[in-house]
């Protein structure tokens, strides 16, 4: 499986990455190399192998339904680039 120029640019956009004209061929080569490797792996029979759901092998970490204090607005504001009327302000989206 190989990705075309267009598909590589599409993946870059999904990942919010800027990809210049010069970088494109290199990236395309690297991505396709990875895909080829995965293709090789897919040829290995995994019949009877239980899917690894999590690397720990542990299950069920729960918390009880208990409310704890929220972060004060002042502290949230400190971390926000733009904060108005108790809200995060972002460039208009629609």
């Amino acid at each position: 499986m190989t990705l075309t120029d267009k598909e590589v640019l599409h993946v870059a956009r999904l990942a919010q990455l800027e990809l210049s004209e010069e970088d494109l061929p290199r990236m395309q080569g690297e991505i396709n190399e990875i895909l080829n490797h995965v293709e090789r792996l897919q040829k290995v029979s995994s019949l009877g192998v239980v899917p690894t759901l999590h690397v720990h092998g542990e299950i069920n970490a729960f918390r009880d339904d208990i409310i704890r204090d929220s972060i004060p607005l002042e502290k949230i504001e400190m971390n926000a680039p733009d904060f108005r009327a108790c809200c995060f302000r972002v460039p208009r989206i629609i």
Binding site: R63, D65, I66, I67, R68, S70, I71, L73, I76, A85, C86, C87, F88
Partner: peptide
Amino acid sequence: DSKIFARSSTVSGKTANTLTD
């Protein structure tokens, strides 16, 4: 009472961003 993966409250009608963690 609290969120699905976090400790803050799920009530509605509160001042914006006061139910966060």
